[in-house]
Nucleic acid binder design. Structure first.
Length: 463
RNA sequence: GCCCCCAUCGUCUAGCCUGGUCUAGGACAUCGGUCUUUCAAGCCGGUAACGCGGGUUCAAAUCCCGCUGGGGGCGCCA
Protein backbone atom coordinates (compact mmCIF):
# COMPACT_ATOMS: atom_id res chain seq x y z
CA UNK A 1 0.00 0.00 0.00
CA UNK A 2 1.14 3.50 -0.79
CA UNK A 3 1.64 5.61 2.33
CA UNK A 4 2.65 9.22 2.02
CA UNK A 5 3.08 11.89 4.60
CA UNK A 6 3.06 15.63 4.79
CA UNK A 7 5.52 16.81 7.41
CA UNK A 8 5.41 20.54 8.01
CA UNK A 9 7.22 22.19 10.84
CA UNK A 10 4.89 24.54 12.69
CA UNK A 11 7.32 27.42 12.55
CA UNK A 12 5.57 29.74 10.15
CA UNK A 13 2.40 30.51 8.32
CA UNK A 14 0.82 28.03 5.96
CA UNK A 15 1.53 29.33 2.46
CA UNK A 16 1.01 28.17 -1.10
CA UNK A 17 4.40 26.49 -1.39
CA UNK A 18 3.89 24.24 1.59
CA UNK A 19 0.28 23.68 0.60
CA UNK A 20 1.32 22.48 -2.83
CA UNK A 21 3.59 19.88 -1.26
CA UNK A 22 0.69 18.72 0.91
CA UNK A 23 -1.58 18.54 -2.12
CA UNK A 24 0.79 16.45 -4.22
CA UNK A 25 1.45 14.14 -1.34
CA UNK A 26 -2.27 13.75 -0.76
CA UNK A 27 -3.05 13.25 -4.43
CA UNK A 28 -0.46 10.55 -4.81
CA UNK A 29 -1.77 8.64 -1.81
CA UNK A 30 -5.40 8.89 -2.90
CA UNK A 31 -4.64 8.05 -6.48
CA UNK A 32 -3.15 4.79 -5.27
CA UNK A 33 -5.87 4.16 -2.73
CA UNK A 34 -3.26 4.66 -0.09
CA UNK A 35 -2.90 6.44 3.18
CA UNK A 36 -1.99 10.04 3.84
CA UNK A 37 -0.44 10.96 7.15
CA UNK A 38 0.01 14.39 8.69
CA UNK A 39 3.15 14.58 10.77
CA UNK A 40 3.95 17.67 12.75
CA UNK A 41 7.72 18.14 12.73
CA UNK A 42 8.01 20.08 15.96
CA UNK A 43 11.39 19.00 17.23
CA UNK A 44 12.64 22.56 17.25
CA UNK A 45 10.95 23.57 20.44
CA UNK A 46 12.10 27.18 20.27
CA UNK A 47 10.49 27.93 16.93
CA UNK A 48 7.47 25.64 16.96
CA UNK A 49 4.21 27.33 17.81
CA UNK A 50 0.83 25.77 18.43
CA UNK A 51 -0.94 28.50 16.44
CA UNK A 52 1.03 27.55 13.37
CA UNK A 53 0.01 23.94 13.84
CA UNK A 54 -3.59 25.08 14.06
CA UNK A 55 -3.18 27.13 10.92
CA UNK A 56 -1.82 24.13 9.05
CA UNK A 57 -4.80 22.04 10.08
CA UNK A 58 -7.26 24.78 9.22
CA UNK A 59 -5.55 25.30 5.90
CA UNK A 60 -5.66 21.62 5.00
CA UNK A 61 -9.28 21.55 6.01
CA UNK A 62 -10.03 24.45 3.72
CA UNK A 63 -8.20 22.78 0.87
CA UNK A 64 -10.20 19.62 1.35
CA UNK A 65 -7.10 17.60 2.16
CA UNK A 66 -8.07 14.98 4.70
CA UNK A 67 -5.44 13.03 6.57
CA UNK A 68 -5.90 9.48 7.73
CA UNK A 69 -3.57 9.87 10.66
CA UNK A 70 -1.82 12.61 12.57
CA UNK A 71 1.00 12.71 15.08
CA UNK A 72 3.62 14.99 16.53
CA UNK A 73 7.29 14.25 16.66
CA UNK A 74 7.47 15.80 20.10
CA UNK A 75 5.43 12.82 21.30
CA UNK A 76 8.05 10.36 20.09
CA UNK A 77 11.20 11.69 21.73
CA UNK A 78 11.84 8.42 23.58
CA UNK A 79 11.78 6.49 20.34
CA UNK A 80 14.39 8.74 18.72
CA UNK A 81 16.61 8.39 21.78
CA UNK A 82 16.24 4.63 21.61
CA UNK A 83 17.32 4.52 17.97
CA UNK A 84 20.23 6.84 18.67
CA UNK A 85 21.50 4.61 21.47
CA UNK A 86 21.28 1.62 19.22
CA UNK A 87 23.21 3.42 16.51
CA UNK A 88 26.00 4.31 18.96
CA UNK A 89 26.18 0.77 20.30
CA UNK A 90 26.55 -0.60 16.82
CA UNK A 91 29.17 1.88 15.73
CA UNK A 92 27.01 3.90 13.35
CA UNK A 93 27.11 7.02 15.45
CA UNK A 94 29.26 8.67 18.07
CA UNK A 95 29.13 11.27 20.78
CA UNK A 96 30.40 14.72 19.92
CA UNK A 97 31.52 16.95 22.74
CA UNK A 98 32.31 19.99 20.65
CA UNK A 99 30.46 23.02 21.88
CA UNK A 100 28.17 24.86 19.49
CA UNK A 101 30.35 27.93 19.92
CA UNK A 102 33.48 26.07 18.91
CA UNK A 103 31.77 24.67 15.84
CA UNK A 104 30.39 28.02 14.86
CA UNK A 105 33.83 29.58 15.09
CA UNK A 106 35.22 26.81 12.93
CA UNK A 107 32.46 27.34 10.40
CA UNK A 108 33.07 31.06 10.13
CA UNK A 109 36.78 30.45 9.78
CA UNK A 110 36.26 27.99 6.98
CA UNK A 111 33.86 30.28 5.19
CA UNK A 112 36.31 33.14 5.44
CA UNK A 113 39.00 31.00 3.90
CA UNK A 114 36.48 29.99 1.24
CA UNK A 115 36.81 26.40 2.35
CA UNK A 116 34.08 23.87 2.90
CA UNK A 117 32.43 24.70 6.21
CA UNK A 118 32.00 21.09 7.19
CA UNK A 119 32.40 19.37 10.53
CA UNK A 120 36.08 18.46 10.88
CA UNK A 121 35.42 15.16 12.66
CA UNK A 122 37.03 16.20 15.91
CA UNK A 123 35.20 13.65 18.05
CA UNK A 124 34.99 10.89 15.49
CA UNK A 125 37.43 8.54 17.12
CA UNK A 126 37.28 9.90 20.60
CA UNK A 127 37.61 7.24 23.25
CA UNK A 128 36.97 9.21 26.45
CA UNK A 129 33.44 10.04 27.46
CA UNK A 130 33.54 12.84 30.02
CA UNK A 131 30.59 12.34 32.30
CA UNK A 132 29.98 15.99 33.07
CA UNK A 133 30.20 17.41 29.57
CA UNK A 134 27.09 17.72 27.35
CA UNK A 135 27.28 15.98 24.03
CA UNK A 136 25.45 15.71 20.77
CA UNK A 137 25.33 12.53 18.71
CA UNK A 138 26.62 12.44 15.17
CA UNK A 139 26.22 9.95 12.40
CA UNK A 140 29.46 8.29 11.39
CA UNK A 141 29.77 8.44 7.63
CA UNK A 142 31.84 5.43 6.48
CA UNK A 143 35.46 6.23 5.66
CA UNK A 144 35.61 4.60 2.28
CA UNK A 145 34.69 6.67 -0.70
CA UNK A 146 31.49 5.67 -2.43
CA UNK A 147 28.57 7.18 -4.25
CA UNK A 148 25.09 7.56 -2.88
CA UNK A 149 22.69 7.38 -5.74
CA UNK A 150 18.93 7.49 -5.87
CA UNK A 151 16.22 7.63 -8.46
CA UNK A 152 14.07 10.60 -7.60
CA UNK A 153 10.54 10.34 -8.97
CA UNK A 154 10.68 13.96 -10.04
CA UNK A 155 14.33 14.90 -10.34
CA UNK A 156 15.36 11.56 -11.83
CA UNK A 157 18.83 10.29 -11.02
CA UNK A 158 20.72 12.15 -8.33
CA UNK A 159 24.10 11.08 -7.10
CA UNK A 160 26.42 12.45 -4.48
CA UNK A 161 29.91 11.45 -3.52
CA UNK A 162 30.26 10.27 0.06
CA UNK A 163 33.01 12.81 0.61
CA UNK A 164 30.35 15.46 0.31
CA UNK A 165 28.45 14.07 3.25
CA UNK A 166 29.55 15.23 6.64
CA UNK A 167 28.98 13.60 10.01
CA UNK A 168 25.59 15.19 10.56
CA UNK A 169 23.98 15.55 13.93
CA UNK A 170 21.32 13.08 15.00
CA UNK A 171 20.65 14.14 18.54
CA UNK A 172 21.20 17.56 20.05
CA UNK A 173 22.82 18.01 23.41
CA UNK A 174 19.39 18.80 24.84
CA UNK A 175 18.27 15.29 23.99
CA UNK A 176 16.00 16.30 21.14
CA UNK A 177 16.47 14.76 17.71
CA UNK A 178 17.33 16.72 14.62
CA UNK A 179 15.21 16.69 11.52
CA UNK A 180 17.36 14.12 9.73
CA UNK A 181 17.04 11.57 12.50
CA UNK A 182 13.42 12.08 13.46
CA UNK A 183 12.24 12.16 9.90
CA UNK A 184 13.96 8.93 8.97
CA UNK A 185 12.88 7.08 12.08
CA UNK A 186 9.28 8.10 11.49
CA UNK A 187 9.36 7.24 7.81
CA UNK A 188 10.64 3.80 8.77
CA UNK A 189 8.24 3.24 11.66
CA UNK A 190 5.23 4.37 9.67
CA UNK A 191 6.32 2.46 6.58
CA UNK A 192 6.20 5.52 4.37
CA UNK A 193 6.49 4.41 0.75
CA UNK A 194 6.86 7.82 -0.87
CA UNK A 195 8.59 10.80 0.63
CA UNK A 196 7.20 13.80 -1.22
CA UNK A 197 8.70 17.11 -0.18
CA UNK A 198 10.28 20.32 -1.38
CA UNK A 199 13.46 20.37 -3.42
CA UNK A 200 15.20 22.13 -0.54
CA UNK A 201 15.55 18.69 0.99
CA UNK A 202 17.52 17.17 -1.85
CA UNK A 203 20.83 17.64 -0.11
CA UNK A 204 19.49 15.97 3.03
CA UNK A 205 18.48 12.91 1.13
CA UNK A 206 21.87 11.20 0.76
CA UNK A 207 22.39 11.57 4.51
CA UNK A 208 19.01 10.11 5.20
CA UNK A 209 19.54 7.28 2.77
CA UNK A 210 22.58 6.23 4.78
CA UNK A 211 20.34 6.04 7.83
CA UNK A 212 17.53 4.33 5.96
CA UNK A 213 19.89 1.63 4.83
CA UNK A 214 20.89 0.84 8.39
CA UNK A 215 17.30 0.83 9.57
CA UNK A 216 16.25 -1.39 6.73
CA UNK A 217 13.56 0.55 4.87
CA UNK A 218 14.14 2.92 1.99
CA UNK A 219 11.16 4.85 0.65
CA UNK A 220 10.97 6.37 -2.78
CA UNK A 221 11.68 10.07 -3.03
CA UNK A 222 9.99 12.83 -4.95
CA UNK A 223 11.41 16.31 -4.60
CA UNK A 224 9.17 19.04 -5.86
CA UNK A 225 10.68 22.16 -7.39
CA UNK A 226 10.14 25.15 -5.19
CA UNK A 227 7.47 27.70 -5.92
CA UNK A 228 8.79 31.17 -6.57
CA UNK A 229 6.90 34.23 -5.42
CA UNK A 230 4.66 36.09 -7.81
CA UNK A 231 6.06 39.57 -8.43
CA UNK A 232 2.97 41.35 -7.18
CA UNK A 233 1.35 44.16 -9.08
CA UNK A 234 -0.56 47.07 -7.65
CA UNK A 235 -3.59 46.78 -9.84
CA UNK A 236 -4.82 43.62 -8.25
CA UNK A 237 -4.90 44.78 -4.68
CA UNK A 238 -7.53 47.28 -5.67
CA UNK A 239 -9.95 44.68 -6.85
CA UNK A 240 -9.20 41.85 -4.53
CA UNK A 241 -9.02 43.95 -1.42
CA UNK A 242 -5.96 42.16 -0.15
CA UNK A 243 -2.35 42.04 -1.18
CA UNK A 244 -1.35 39.30 1.17
CA UNK A 245 -2.17 36.45 -1.06
CA UNK A 246 0.33 33.69 -0.46
CA UNK A 247 -1.22 32.41 2.76
CA UNK A 248 -3.96 29.85 2.39
CA UNK A 249 -6.07 31.19 5.21
CA UNK A 250 -5.87 34.69 3.74
CA UNK A 251 -7.05 33.39 0.42
CA UNK A 252 -9.98 31.82 2.21
CA UNK A 253 -10.73 35.10 3.90
CA UNK A 254 -10.55 36.94 0.59
CA UNK A 255 -13.23 34.74 -0.87
CA UNK A 256 -11.21 32.25 -2.86
CA UNK A 257 -12.80 28.87 -3.39
CA UNK A 258 -10.99 25.74 -2.35
CA UNK A 259 -11.58 24.38 -5.85
CA UNK A 260 -9.73 27.29 -7.40
CA UNK A 261 -6.83 27.16 -4.98
CA UNK A 262 -6.20 23.44 -5.33
CA UNK A 263 -6.64 23.79 -9.07
CA UNK A 264 -3.96 26.44 -9.31
CA UNK A 265 -1.62 24.72 -6.90
CA UNK A 266 -1.83 21.53 -8.91
CA UNK A 267 -0.94 23.32 -12.12
CA UNK A 268 2.26 24.69 -10.58
CA UNK A 269 4.80 22.24 -11.90
CA UNK A 270 2.32 19.81 -13.34
CA UNK A 271 0.03 19.69 -16.35
CA UNK A 272 -2.26 17.30 -18.13
CA UNK A 273 -2.35 18.06 -21.84
CA UNK A 274 -4.10 21.39 -22.40
CA UNK A 275 -6.55 20.98 -19.56
CA UNK A 276 -6.82 23.94 -17.21
CA UNK A 277 -9.76 23.18 -14.96
CA UNK A 278 -9.41 20.28 -12.56
CA UNK A 279 -11.70 19.22 -9.76
CA UNK A 280 -10.16 17.36 -6.84
CA UNK A 281 -11.56 14.10 -8.18
CA UNK A 282 -10.04 14.73 -11.57
CA UNK A 283 -6.73 15.58 -9.97
CA UNK A 284 -6.74 12.34 -8.04
CA UNK A 285 -7.52 10.50 -11.21
CA UNK A 286 -5.04 12.22 -13.52
CA UNK A 287 -2.16 13.20 -11.27
CA UNK A 288 1.14 11.42 -11.70
CA UNK A 289 4.04 12.26 -9.44
CA UNK A 290 6.61 11.22 -12.03
CA UNK A 291 5.23 13.75 -14.48
CA UNK A 292 5.93 16.71 -12.25
CA UNK A 293 8.30 19.26 -13.77
CA UNK A 294 11.78 19.83 -12.55
CA UNK A 295 11.70 23.58 -13.03
CA UNK A 296 10.75 25.99 -10.27
CA UNK A 297 7.37 27.57 -10.97
CA UNK A 298 6.21 31.05 -10.17
CA UNK A 299 3.02 31.43 -8.20
CA UNK A 300 0.60 33.24 -10.48
CA UNK A 301 -1.95 35.19 -8.54
CA UNK A 302 -3.77 36.51 -11.58
CA UNK A 303 -4.31 33.05 -12.88
CA UNK A 304 -5.63 31.95 -9.50
CA UNK A 305 -7.96 34.91 -9.62
CA UNK A 306 -9.21 33.87 -13.04
CA UNK A 307 -9.58 30.28 -11.89
CA UNK A 308 -11.68 31.51 -9.02
CA UNK A 309 -14.07 33.24 -11.41
CA UNK A 310 -14.25 30.07 -13.47
CA UNK A 311 -15.10 27.98 -10.43
CA UNK A 312 -17.76 30.46 -9.39
CA UNK A 313 -19.39 29.78 -12.72
CA UNK A 314 -19.00 26.03 -12.42
CA UNK A 315 -20.21 25.43 -8.88
CA UNK A 316 -23.93 24.77 -8.37
CA UNK A 317 -25.93 27.68 -6.97
CA UNK A 318 -26.79 25.89 -3.75
CA UNK A 319 -23.17 25.30 -2.90
CA UNK A 320 -22.27 28.86 -3.79
CA UNK A 321 -24.95 30.26 -1.54
CA UNK A 322 -23.82 28.02 1.25
CA UNK A 323 -20.26 29.30 0.89
CA UNK A 324 -21.53 32.84 0.60
CA UNK A 325 -23.03 32.63 4.06
CA UNK A 326 -19.50 33.00 5.44
CA UNK A 327 -19.36 36.46 3.92
CA UNK A 328 -22.91 37.72 4.21
CA UNK A 329 -25.71 37.32 6.73
CA UNK A 330 -29.02 36.33 5.23
CA UNK A 331 -32.12 34.34 6.02
CA UNK A 332 -33.51 31.35 4.18
CA UNK A 333 -36.09 33.47 2.40
CA UNK A 334 -33.40 35.89 1.32
CA UNK A 335 -31.36 32.95 0.10
CA UNK A 336 -34.14 32.21 -2.37
CA UNK A 337 -33.96 35.78 -3.66
CA UNK A 338 -30.19 35.58 -3.97
CA UNK A 339 -30.53 32.39 -5.91
CA UNK A 340 -32.75 34.22 -8.34
CA UNK A 341 -30.14 36.81 -9.19
CA UNK A 342 -27.12 34.55 -8.85
CA UNK A 343 -26.73 33.89 -12.58
CA UNK A 344 -26.41 37.62 -13.18
CA UNK A 345 -23.99 38.05 -10.29
CA UNK A 346 -21.79 35.06 -11.04
CA UNK A 347 -20.46 36.40 -14.31
CA UNK A 348 -19.56 39.70 -12.69
CA UNK A 349 -17.46 38.65 -9.73
CA UNK A 350 -14.25 36.79 -9.16
CA UNK A 351 -14.54 35.93 -5.50
CA UNK A 352 -17.06 35.20 -2.79
CA UNK A 353 -16.15 38.48 -1.18
CA UNK A 354 -16.96 40.38 -4.35
CA UNK A 355 -20.12 38.38 -4.65
CA UNK A 356 -21.21 39.37 -1.16
CA UNK A 357 -20.49 43.00 -1.94
CA UNK A 358 -22.56 42.85 -5.08
CA UNK A 359 -25.50 41.31 -3.31
CA UNK A 360 -25.49 43.62 -0.29
CA UNK A 361 -27.17 46.61 -2.00
CA UNK A 362 -29.96 44.28 -3.03
CA UNK A 363 -30.77 43.67 0.62
CA UNK A 364 -30.67 47.33 1.50
CA UNK A 365 -29.24 50.56 0.16
CA UNK A 366 -27.36 52.57 2.77
CA UNK A 367 -25.59 55.15 0.67
CA UNK A 368 -25.63 56.50 -2.84
CA UNK A 369 -22.53 56.89 -4.94
CA UNK A 370 -21.38 60.51 -4.64
CA UNK A 371 -20.33 61.01 -8.21
CA UNK A 372 -23.58 59.47 -9.34
CA UNK A 373 -25.68 61.69 -7.16
CA UNK A 374 -24.06 64.76 -8.70
CA UNK A 375 -24.63 63.53 -12.19
CA UNK A 376 -28.03 61.86 -12.05
CA UNK A 377 -30.03 63.07 -9.08
CA UNK A 378 -31.00 66.40 -10.66
CA UNK A 379 -34.17 67.95 -12.10
CA UNK A 380 -34.31 65.68 -15.11
CA UNK A 381 -33.48 62.70 -13.00
CA UNK A 382 -36.33 63.51 -10.70
CA UNK A 383 -38.88 63.75 -13.51
CA UNK A 384 -37.65 60.50 -14.93
CA UNK A 385 -37.89 58.76 -11.59
CA UNK A 386 -41.40 60.00 -11.08
CA UNK A 387 -42.46 58.55 -14.41
CA UNK A 388 -40.52 55.40 -13.74
CA UNK A 389 -42.35 54.98 -10.47
CA UNK A 390 -45.71 55.03 -12.24
CA UNK A 391 -44.73 52.91 -15.19
CA UNK A 392 -42.80 50.23 -13.34
CA UNK A 393 -45.74 49.76 -11.01
CA UNK A 394 -47.66 48.43 -13.97
CA UNK A 395 -44.94 46.15 -15.22
CA UNK A 396 -46.42 42.75 -15.93
CA UNK A 397 -45.08 39.38 -14.92
CA UNK A 398 -45.26 37.76 -18.30
CA UNK A 399 -42.62 36.82 -20.80
CA UNK A 400 -42.87 40.18 -22.45
CA UNK A 401 -42.10 42.19 -19.39
CA UNK A 402 -38.43 42.36 -20.22
CA UNK A 403 -39.30 43.99 -23.51
CA UNK A 404 -41.83 46.21 -21.80
CA UNK A 405 -39.14 47.36 -19.43
CA UNK A 406 -36.79 48.12 -22.27
CA UNK A 407 -39.52 50.05 -24.01
CA UNK A 408 -40.11 52.16 -20.91
CA UNK A 409 -36.46 53.14 -20.84
CA UNK A 410 -36.45 53.98 -24.53
CA UNK A 411 -39.56 56.11 -24.34
CA UNK A 412 -38.30 58.11 -21.39
CA UNK A 413 -35.02 58.62 -23.15
CA UNK A 414 -36.87 60.15 -26.10
CA UNK A 415 -39.30 62.16 -24.06
CA UNK A 416 -36.63 63.87 -21.97
CA UNK A 417 -34.13 64.02 -24.77
CA UNK A 418 -31.42 62.18 -22.86
CA UNK A 419 -29.43 59.12 -23.76
CA UNK A 420 -30.94 55.83 -22.78
CA UNK A 421 -27.94 55.22 -20.60
CA UNK A 422 -28.90 58.29 -18.56
CA UNK A 423 -32.31 56.85 -17.77
CA UNK A 424 -30.77 53.53 -16.89
CA UNK A 425 -28.18 55.06 -14.62
CA UNK A 426 -30.70 57.20 -12.79
CA UNK A 427 -32.73 54.13 -12.06
CA UNK A 428 -29.69 52.06 -11.21
CA UNK A 429 -28.49 54.58 -8.71
CA UNK A 430 -31.93 54.87 -7.16
CA UNK A 431 -32.43 51.15 -6.79
CA UNK A 432 -28.91 50.02 -6.06
CA UNK A 433 -26.99 53.03 -4.81
CA UNK A 434 -24.12 52.39 -7.20
CA UNK A 435 -23.37 53.01 -10.85
CA UNK A 436 -22.37 49.41 -11.37
CA UNK A 437 -24.85 46.65 -10.72
CA UNK A 438 -26.33 43.48 -12.12
CA UNK A 439 -28.69 44.19 -15.04
CA UNK A 440 -31.53 46.47 -14.02
CA UNK A 441 -34.29 44.16 -15.07
CA UNK A 442 -32.90 41.41 -12.84
CA UNK A 443 -32.55 43.84 -9.98
CA UNK A 444 -36.20 44.87 -10.26
CA UNK A 445 -37.30 41.27 -10.40
CA UNK A 446 -35.41 40.41 -7.24
CA UNK A 447 -36.56 43.49 -5.37
CA UNK A 448 -40.16 43.04 -6.43
CA UNK A 449 -42.37 45.87 -7.68
CA UNK A 450 -43.26 47.11 -4.20
CA UNK A 451 -39.67 47.46 -3.06
CA UNK A 452 -38.71 48.97 -6.40
CA UNK A 453 -41.34 51.67 -6.06
CA UNK A 454 -40.40 52.26 -2.44
CA UNK A 455 -36.75 52.78 -3.30
CA UNK A 456 -37.63 55.17 -6.11
CA UNK A 457 -39.91 57.16 -3.82
CA UNK A 458 -37.19 57.44 -1.22
CA UNK A 459 -34.87 58.99 -3.75
CA UNK A 460 -37.50 61.37 -5.13
CA UNK A 461 -37.92 62.67 -1.58
CA UNK A 462 -34.27 63.50 -1.22
CA UNK A 463 -33.80 65.29 -4.52
C1' G B 1 34.29 28.74 -2.05
C1' C B 2 32.18 23.66 -2.60
C1' C B 3 27.98 20.34 -3.90
C1' C B 4 23.20 19.23 -6.28
C1' C B 5 19.36 20.47 -9.70
C1' C B 6 17.17 23.21 -13.67
C1' A B 7 16.69 26.17 -18.61
C1' U B 8 10.13 26.82 -24.48
C1' C B 9 5.98 33.40 -25.06
C1' G B 10 5.91 38.48 -19.31
C1' U B 11 3.73 33.99 -16.26
C1' C B 12 1.90 28.59 -15.90
C1' U B 13 2.82 25.02 -19.45
C1' A B 14 2.30 21.14 -24.16
C1' G B 15 6.03 19.15 -27.25
C1' C B 16 11.69 16.61 -25.56
C1' C B 17 12.34 10.17 -23.30
C1' U B 18 10.86 7.16 -28.75
C1' G B 19 14.90 13.43 -33.58
C1' G B 20 11.28 15.06 -39.22
C1' U B 21 3.96 15.92 -38.65
C1' C B 22 6.72 22.56 -34.69
C1' U B 23 6.21 28.20 -40.25
C1' A B 24 6.40 25.53 -31.70
C1' G B 25 0.15 24.33 -29.39
C1' G B 26 -3.01 25.82 -25.00
C1' A B 27 -4.04 28.97 -20.68
C1' C B 28 -3.37 33.59 -17.64
C1' A B 29 -1.96 38.53 -18.44
C1' U B 30 -1.80 42.24 -22.29
C1' C B 31 -3.62 44.88 -26.86
C1' G B 32 -7.58 45.52 -30.62
C1' G B 33 -12.69 44.46 -32.22
C1' U B 34 -17.79 42.74 -31.29
C1' C B 35 -22.13 42.62 -28.10
C1' U B 36 -24.34 46.26 -24.62
C1' U B 37 -28.89 50.30 -20.03
C1' U B 38 -23.78 50.06 -16.09
C1' C B 39 -20.06 46.54 -15.03
C1' A B 40 -18.85 41.98 -16.37
C1' A B 41 -19.15 37.56 -19.03
C1' G B 42 -19.18 35.70 -24.03
C1' C B 43 -17.42 35.73 -29.05
C1' C B 44 -13.56 37.15 -32.90
C1' G B 45 -8.60 38.67 -33.70
C1' G B 46 -3.37 40.55 -32.56
C1' U B 47 1.61 40.91 -30.02
C1' A B 48 4.74 37.37 -27.70
C1' A B 49 9.25 31.88 -26.60
C1' C B 50 12.86 27.00 -28.03
C1' G B 51 19.26 31.51 -23.36
C1' C B 52 24.22 31.39 -26.20
C1' G B 53 28.14 28.61 -28.68
C1' G B 54 29.91 24.15 -30.49
C1' G B 55 29.09 19.25 -32.08
C1' U B 56 26.14 14.42 -33.84
C1' U B 57 22.67 13.83 -38.08
C1' C B 58 20.11 14.12 -44.55
C1' A B 59 17.29 16.57 -40.46
C1' A B 60 17.48 19.16 -33.46
C1' A B 61 13.09 22.68 -29.30
C1' U B 62 14.03 17.42 -29.17
C1' C B 63 20.60 13.72 -28.50
C1' C B 64 25.97 15.20 -26.58
C1' C B 65 29.57 18.96 -24.68
C1' G B 66 30.84 23.87 -23.02
C1' C B 67 29.31 28.70 -21.50
C1' U B 68 25.85 31.82 -19.43
C1' G B 69 21.69 32.38 -16.45
C1' G B 70 18.35 30.70 -12.46
C1' G B 71 17.09 27.79 -8.12
C1' G B 72 18.43 24.92 -3.87
C1' G B 73 21.86 23.23 -0.22
C1' C B 74 26.51 23.40 2.69
C1' G B 75 23.48 24.31 11.22
C1' C B 76 23.03 20.88 17.92
C1' C B 77 16.62 24.80 11.49
C1' A B 78 13.34 22.04 9.11
Amino acid sequence: MVITRFAPSPTGRFHVGVARTALFSYLWAKKNNGKFILRIDDTDKERSKIEYEEEIKAGLNFLGIKYDEIFRQSDRIARYKEVTDWLIENGFAYRCYCSPEELERYRQEALRKKMNPRYPGTCRSRKDFPKDKPFAVRFKVPDDIFTVEFEDLVMKKISVNSEEIEDFTLLRSNGLPTYNLASVVDDVDFKITHVIRGADHISNTPKQILLFRILGHIPQFAHLPLILPDEGEGKLSKRVESINSIYILDLKKDGFLTEAVTNHLARLGWAYKDKEIFSMDELIQLFDISEVNRTPARYNFKKLYWLNSEWIKILPDDILIQRLSEFLDFSDTTAEKIKQILPAVKVRVNSLLEMANMIKPLLSVETYDEEGVKEFFNETGKYILEELKEKLATLSDGENSRLEFDKILSELSQKYNVKKVFVAQVLRLALYGKLVSPPLYEVIRVLGIDETVKRIEKVIQRI
